[in-house]
């Protein structure tokens, strides 16, 4: 049962990703990306990361990609303004060929790890152990993230602000 779900989700994820790369219209790409992200969140859930599953949907699907689609619509790009990519498929194909060795390399390295997962605790992946870990060990990065977001905020304000005459 789980296998079937896994296969389904991963094929959705990969299909979405492929769609994102292949579609010409940015909106279609973005929608494919959403599909991919939601399928990924399903994979997270399979990995018993229930909190991350929700975070993925809330932050990624709910905020980041929403923002992206919002911007796409906001710009209301006409077909004529889209880049012409006549050799897209060829470059994609060649690039894919080029990436095969990299994948094989990394996958071979991973293949040597013991494959099956350890037995899961009752609450592994829940919000509580995650919070404990976060505030016991990862407090500093967590705080730094806030500074990072602040910087991004200032940056967005700087870029988004109306230009002076």
């Amino acid at each position: 049962m789980l296998d079937v779900i896994f296969l389904l989700l991963s094929s959705f994820a990969i299909g979405g990703a492929l769609g994102m790369v292949l579609f010409h219209q940015p909106v279609h790409s973005a929608l494919s990306l959403i599909l991919c992200i939601i399928a990924l969140s399903g994979l997270f859930a399979l990995l018993s990361a229930s909190f991350l599953f929700m975070v993925q949907i809330i932050v990624y699907a709910g905020a980041i990609i929403t923002l992206l689609i919002f911007i796409i619509m906001f710009l209301n790009v006409k077909e004529a303004n889209l880049p012409k990519e006549p050799h897209k498929n060829i470059t994609l194909f060649l690039g894919a060929l080029g990436l095969i060795p990299l994948n094989i390399l990394i996958l071979r390295a991973f293949y040597k790890l013991p494959s099956s997962f350890l037995e899961k605790n009752d609450n592994f992946g829940d919000i509580k152990p995650l919070g404990m870990e976060l505030f016991e060990h990862w407090l500093l990065p967590f705080e730094l993230i806030s500074i990072l977001l602040l910087v991004a905020l200032i940056g967005a304000v700087v870029f988004g602000r109306k230009e002076e005459a």
Binding site: S50, F53, M54, I57, A61, G62, A63
Partner: peptide, 14 residues
């Protein structure tokens, strides 16, 4: 499932 509020936020956002 016991994700409660998060679930709500997730799908309300979608």
């Amino acid at each position: 499932i016991d994700l409660g509020i998060l679930w709500f936020l997730a799908f309300a956002g979608l």
